[in-house]
Write a protein that binds this DNA or RNA. Sequence first.
DNA 1: AATGAATGAGCTTTCATTCAT
DNA 2: TATGAATGAAAGCTCATTCAT
Lengths: 217, 217, 217, 217
Amino acid sequence: MAASKDKLRRALPKEVRKQQLIDATSRSIAKNGLSGTTMATITREAELSMGIANLHFKSKDMLLSATLAHITDEYNSGQSGLLSSTEYSSLADKLKALLDFNFSAKVTQKNKLAVWFAFWGEAKFRPTYKRICSTSDAMAEKAIGDLFQQIIDEGRYKEADAELLAIGYTALLDGLWLDLLVTPRTVNREKARKVACHYLASAFPKHIKVDVTSHDK
Amino acid sequence: MAASKDKLRRALPKEVRKQQLIDATSRSIAKNGLSGTTMATITREAELSMGIANLHFKSKDMLLSATLAHITDEYNSGQSGLLSSTEYSSLADKLKALLDFNFSAKVTQKNKLAVWFAFWGEAKFRPTYKRICSTSDAMAEKAIGDLFQQIIDEGRYKEADAELLAIGYTALLDGLWLDLLVTPRTVNREKARKVACHYLASAFPKHIKVDVTSHDK
Amino acid sequence: MAASKDKLRRALPKEVRKQQLIDATSRSIAKNGLSGTTMATITREAELSMGIANLHFKSKDMLLSATLAHITDEYNSGQSGLLSSTEYSSLADKLKALLDFNFSAKVTQKNKLAVWFAFWGEAKFRPTYKRICSTSDAMAEKAIGDLFQQIIDEGRYKEADAELLAIGYTALLDGLWLDLLVTPRTVNREKARKVACHYLASAFPKHIKVDVTSHDK
Amino acid sequence: MAASKDKLRRALPKEVRKQQLIDATSRSIAKNGLSGTTMATITREAELSMGIANLHFKSKDMLLSATLAHITDEYNSGQSGLLSSTEYSSLADKLKALLDFNFSAKVTQKNKLAVWFAFWGEAKFRPTYKRICSTSDAMAEKAIGDLFQQIIDEGRYKEADAELLAIGYTALLDGLWLDLLVTPRTVNREKARKVACHYLASAFPKHIKVDVTSHDK
DNA sequence: AATGAATGAGCTTTCATTCAT
DNA sequence: TATGAATGAAAGCTCATTCAT
């Protein structure tokens, strides 16, 4: 506690400083938007000096990319850990876990959604952002598609197309997250989850029911 | 081509010039992104001089707002015209028309989607943009919800919730449009339409089939 | 009356248009200051189109110079007419007439004082303005000095120095006019006149008394 | 000379830099006038980079206001220090000291007079400038009026009006300073002082004589 | 002669980046 | 390592001037 107000800022391990800056960047984007985020707002948010960002990251662009990559990695590693896990006793359980994860408090944090969508708007025009977004997206869609295929096989859902369903599910997630971010009064986490649950339930009625409740904290 | 190099300074009606500038703004956003769009890129795109934008719009912000409002109005007037039309012989036809409209070439133009999503990222932090986006959004969702309710009543779909379905459908549209913009190779217009069609078909099986084909040019 | 609202602006004699523009310039400077006066404020004040000023005057600078010259000429011709007049029955009368003139409503009009002092601040840096101001100043001081010399001769005021008195009187006028313009609540026309009258009375006690009243309307 | 080309970027205490900028602003106004003074002329005069002015002052207007306030404060603190001093053995001495101060080399520096009159022209239209000017003016006139009243009481000058004399003296100062700035060939410091001395001498003959010499360096 | 839309140089301001400390 | 004053390119905006009508 006392140490946190220490004015003699001591050198910290590189990785710690970098993470501080990445977190400060997320907060600044959530507060001020991407276009309102400057090196000044970031370092002020981190309570560090202006020069430090360029010391640890070569440029503003690098810092922003690192921030995007961090958010993205966190999401992907969570989701792929879940999808590749062998702990679930059934595919149905895994499907429910996926749904819970996608609308968990952690994933739907305002800070993270804000960062995510801020970069979407710019991704097309910045190769670095684009690569991060595309890679992440492809991975997620592939992993979900694989799960859906297993479920289709298991449930013998005739005429179900895993790829189309995966595209639809991820698109629905994007759309619902956008709603959570932009119109939080109309669409809250519960309602959004319900909508996504309906989607899965109508595709895989043998595996998931519309009234399945969340196990999220 | 020859005409485009016409250096003659010709005075045009105010409304024509304003529209030229709005169009140039859309193109610039589609080419350079919102953060890469400057008064210079806009006026260069319009092949006009720098000062003209501030002559017809008081500030860059006003021009951007006008551009957003234009895209938004165009979409909304198209959709609400369709939804309030009495020319359709059945609700099923109207539903198909809605689907066709949402994935028509006009609505899914790259320029328009780019503008749309560029502003979404910033809307939270700019009251003017926010108002335009929120209004448009609420209108669209309400109108779609009304149609869905009529369909539910007509089809006696038990347990169907018009509001949730409307939220889901609009979220799915947003997500699919985002895919069309960002990953056009993976998701094209046909595929996106198919995904949305599946969504409607599983909600309203008596009114729309998954294999219904588009009548779009 | 009806004609004044005539939208078909008919061509007017050059001199009339020029004068309209000069008057509009004075009003604009009085309203907006010199730095706040643009071709737009001037032509709006004149209820004419933007282009007309450059049609009748080669440049903004020329129009401003003409405005300064007009105010200056008006003052100088009034004063020199008075000083060279042979209608006064005595030097004392002429001295009183000078005082009355210097604090007449016409000379102390806010518009005119505002123009006058606006240019003083800039005169040093614009040769054209400087020439107009210097010429006018020298003329006024010379003419006043001549009158003072006659009065000194007539009154046998020993040790009185016409040049110093003229410098003092003109400086006092400038200072009092500045007060009228800037602090009109503290110093009004009556009070300013009284102060100047005191100055003259203490220099030429045989010719003018401190309680001499104004004959101004 | 060699030092002036020193391109070394040396961080200096904030107050030092601010003062450098204020001084550079005065010099630029004296050289180029207020309308000819841009951020570029100021920073060039200070031999610093363009951005620095907005780093230490939030805007050009703030820098200009600070410059006006500085000149004004310097004058007022000098004058009020003098008027409230108890070191003078007589009121006559204090009166002479006031006169010397008003025409001292320091007060009549071209730079300072130029700044002073540049702002007078604009003060009416800029609330910030107006407040600074009005406050300064009122203070000066009040302090001088108080001194004059004491002198009147001591000298038993019948019919002398301290307020009118103070208005007259300050107006005369303004007018003479304007002459010093604009027509330095006709009116120099000695002559201007003499004129003001005459004014005081004719008002307070028992306290000051017309031939009293200056003790200024 | 008169109009006002159009031009573009020049202004103030912002901000990523640098670097002496 | 860490600091933050300093830099200067680039942005938005203003406005005197031009010119097709």
